[in-house]
Design a protein around this nucleic acid. Structure first.
Lengths: 256, 256
DNA sequence: TGGTTAAGTAAGTATTTTATGAATTAGCCG
DNA sequence: CGGCTAATTCATAAAATACTTACTTAACCA
């Protein structure tokens, strides 16, 4: 849904030259404004009172807005308008654009934590566990574009807000420990011929899974192949699995 | 120099709470403003006339500004002030913030093209060639943070400007072809036991080299290990080389 | 030397955008 | 019902920001 929107806007954008004149007008922004303008019901009936719903809608809308435009590019006005509520409400519930952004980050991290807990890698054989980990990681990023985009922007801001939250720090060590144990078991059983540092391996898996998503547009422009197409992504999934497993099981030179 | 600045600002930023009140003030922005305020010489002597120098200074300053804040976060005012010239000059030479941004992208790509041409992979043995390619790619990203940052922002904008330039499309296919030949030679000689698609391998190399740079701040917050420290980066370099070479040379299962 | 061109300056303006003060009214509980 | 709380609206402040109009003056060349 989001991808379709992006492609459609790109299409609109490609033909006319950069901008005719005057102040910069972001075509993505204007398009999304118009797109949302029709949906939020008719104008004048007052909004029914439901603070939980309002807060949730604002968070959801803000997530999309920050994902699509980054912190600086995001407009509070667009957020409230897409919800259909008065701009004042945003400040009533969140205090500032900044605090809204932080709450979006926290909101987004609740998802991944829940999903990660369901992995249960210790019951599988080393090779199968590793395969599952790569597939899970790949699929998570592949199917959570908003997560990917919000994190990209947070890195643009040099992680200024994520260090404040405390929500993210918990429960990442268990995953690294689990990977350590898989590698140790694999080495002991002889199915793995190379030991790698667990954190390095995990970052590698994340890199293989997410880099083409983070950099899809420039890579596509550079190589002339659409790295964001479903076809390429499914090939990428197989490649990631294959590469990691081959690296662990194979070869005779090099250490890790 | 840039990294130091970032760390210093982060240090300032960590203690006081998000913002006291009022409109959002970006601490990085204010710091860099103050930092630059002292340098651009005394106020009132008129600027000596040198269009080339002025244009070059503006491009350079804009590159840093766009890298540090993204397109929307960048301020034309800061760019001209850090150069020490009148804001009108930016429009005199570039026309708009938007066109300035495009010219920065083109400027940045001239570097990498020049460096890539010096690779000369075909003379090396497959294993050595592959090692050199990984090391070169890693080192390029590692030592060109502005390139990395500008591209990250361009992806946030969904590659809206890079598709316009035409500068980037040339001479990327030769690299992919060279990689194809290396892999073919390696398979023929028996040093490689797995054939991979050249584009997949190259994206993989880029991913292993750049993902921790692109996502260093969030990953650092999540895992509590500074992935941007020199120590971690040098370990990362070895890991990337080892992983790719092991994947190519080793194992008996899986294809590519 | 004098005149043309363009580099640079001074001082804005129009617009956008975040944020607020204060009034209004819905909903809940006794 | 009546009154209290807080959800919502209205109108607007206040400041930033991209961009401009109108001008000055240095540099270059016939």
């Amino acid at each position: 849904m989001q991808g379709q929107h992006a492609e459609w806007v790109m299409e609109l954008w490609r033909d006319p030259p950069l901008s005719v004149m005057g102040r910069f007008r972001c075509p993505l922004c204007e398009a999304s404004e118009e797109g949302q303008m029709t949906s939020p019901a008719s104008k004048k009936q007052p909004r029914s009172r439901d603070p939980e719903r309002t807060k949730a809608q604002l968070t959801e809308s803000a997530m999309r807005e920050f994902a699509d435009h980054g912190f600086h590019g995001a407009r509070v006005d667009r957020i409230t308008r897409s919800v259909g509520c008065n701009p004042r409400l945003l400040y009533h519930y969140f205090g500032s654009k900044e605090k809204l952004y932080v709450s979006v980050i926290e909101y987004i991290f609740e998802d991944i934590r829940a999903q990660e807990r369901e992995l249960e890698l210790s019951r599988l054989e080393p090779l199968a566990a590793m395969r599952r980990l790569v597939e899970f990681t790949y699929d998570f990023f592949d199917s959570n574009p908003l997560f990917v985009k919000v994190l990209r922007n947070e890195n643009l801001l040099e992680g200024r807000f994520i260090v404040e939250t405390e929500v993210v720090r918990i429960s990442s060590q268990p995953l690294i420990d689990a990977i350590s144990r898989i590698i140790a078991r694999g080495l002991a059983q002889g199915v793995f011929r190379h030991g790698y540092d667990a954190l390095q391996i995990y970052i590698t898996i994340v890199a293989l899974s997410a880099h083409h998503l983070n950099n899809g547009h420039t890579l596509t422009a550079i190589f002339g192949v659409d790295l964001l197409s479903p076809e390429w992504r499914s090939k990428r999934r197989a490649h990631a699995v294959s590469l990691v497993l081959n690296a662990l099981t194979g070869g005779e030179s090099q250490q890790g």
